[in-house]
Amino acid sequence: MDRPIRVLVSKPGLDGHDRGAKVIARALRDAGMEVIYTGLRQTPEQIVNAAIQEDVDVIATSILSGAHGTLLPKIAELLKEQGAEDILFIGGGVIPDEDIPELIESGVKAIFTPGTPTSETVEFIVNNVRK
């Protein structure tokens, strides 16, 4: 039996809009993945600690408040500190295109902006997760 891909779905920062995070959590579940959902108001430290203990393959974060420039690089940095850069780290939400290169530079592997079909995210995960 193929082992299921384990994904941590999380909302960093104070933003409370979790429709996107929940929709993606369901879509990943329906694609046969094991989703660990940590809910709202997560600090980068909480997210990385959870990711390590749960030994996830993917961290998927959703952020709509505009705090992505601070929080996502912080998560990437903590992952590096823990030697866990092999975890596929992705983000979604209201993130202007012009901010994306900097986020990718910091270690986020992909950014999904509004209107991205969930199937595209699923496909990206399946193709890019550590084997």
Partner: peptide, 11 residues
């Protein structure tokens, strides 16, 4: 506050 990091004045 530490949880305000990155969020001040944003929304």
């Amino acid at each position: 506050h530490s949880l305000a990091e990155g969020e001040v004045g944003k929304v």
